[in-house]
């Protein structure tokens, strides 16, 4: 028999203890130690950094983020200072009150492993492999859409780090479960689903694509039903913790993801829509929901919608 946690919101993902099931999603803030600390102080149960690669990268020229009414479209292009410089930010967060998850990308399995190893060495509590950025050629979804590459990347990373490894999946494939199976068989400790959906916006007055990269990724409320479906399918087919991501904007969305099978949720676009207070809004709402429905712990609702 397991004893009930005293905090009904406390949960666990692949060995990481979380004070509540919300996380700051990768790509949102997450560029410096100061701003990651602020996200934690704002109530996030864990924080994920912006994706870091082996070398500095400037990203794309503006426009990089476009409002499309039902969400945001972005092609920022993975700007980052490279793991060597970013390790300083990670080290600066040694006393962070919540788990620090470093998002990692590369252009080859070796690069993923190199960056992940350095991130863990600097103090990351876990790494999340960005196998899903939809707008950088040769990285992210370009490698993350191929099960054999996903498997090789996860295996390489698992071989060099002793912390949990999350695989963040792209929804821009016909079979997300097949990708997930490759990641899990290679040793992934958890899955993050989903990254943004490939999308585009064209301005009719000037007859030009708005994003400088032309094509980007759609996030926010528009993609939530797709994300919920992905989480549901992954939970049905696989026995591995899932972190739901995609359009979580309220406690109701967070609960929906957990009912679909997510152990925790990541919040991104809603930080723009509702401010950094979104983490508190969600956790307070989830807590009230648990009380109202008579659950002692948030863990009890994970995957509940799958029951007969």
């Amino acid at each position: 028999m397991r004893s009930q946690p005293s905090n009904p919101l406390e949960t666990e993902v692949a060995g990481l203890r979380l004070r509540n099931p919300t996380m700051l999603a990768s790509g949102i803030l997450g560029t410096t130690s100061d701003i990651l600390r602020r996200a934690a102080q704002s109530g996030a149960g864990a924080v994920v950094t912006k994706s870091v690669g082996p070398k500095p990268r400037e990203g794309y020229p503006n426009p990089t983020v476009v409002e499309v009414g039902c969400g945001l479209l972005n092609a920022v292009g993975l700007p980052n200072p490279g793991i060597q410089a970013f390790a300083e930010e990670i080290r600066d967060l040694g006393d962070l009150e919540v788990p620090l998850i470093v998002s990692v990308y590369g252009f080859s399995p070796e690069e993923y492993a190199e960056v992940a190893e350095a991130a863990v060495e600097a103090g990351a509590d876990a790494v999340e492999l960005n196998l899903s950025c939809p707008h950088v050629k040769g990285a992210g979804a370009d490698v993350g859409s191929r099960p054999e590459l996903v498997s090789e990347i996860v295996e390489r990373v698992k071989g060099v780090v002793d912390k949990p490894v999350f695989a963040k999946l792209t929804p821009n494939v016909s079979d997300i479960v097949g990708l997930a199976e490759a990641a899990v068989e290679a040793g992934a400790d958890a899955l993050t689903a989903i990254n943004t959906l490939r999308a585009m916006a064209i301005d009719v007055e000037t007859a030009r694509p708005i994003l400088s990269n032309r094509i980007g990724g759609l996030s926010g409320p528009a993609i939530k039903p797709v994300a919920v479906r992905c989480v549901y399918e992954l939970h049905r087919e696989l026995d591995v913790p899932i972190i739901g991501c995609g359009g979580v904007t309220s406690w109701r969305d967070a609960v929906e993801f957990m009912l679909a099978g997510a152990s925790a949720v990541q919040v991104g676009t809603a930080v723009a829509l509702k401010g950094l207070n979104i983490f508190r809004l969600i956790t307070e709402g989830v807590k009230s929901y648990l009380e109202r429905k008579g659950y002692g712990s948030v863990r009890e609702i994970v995957g509940l919608s799958h029951r007969g």
Binding site: L29, T31, R38, V65, A272
Partner: peptide
């Protein structure tokens, strides 16, 4: 400044955007 709406993290100074 990239996004201008407080999410991309490009313009941070200390804990502020």
């Amino acid at each position: 400044i990239r996004c201008a709406i407080g999410i991309c993290g490009s313009c941070v100074v200390g804990p502020y955007r």
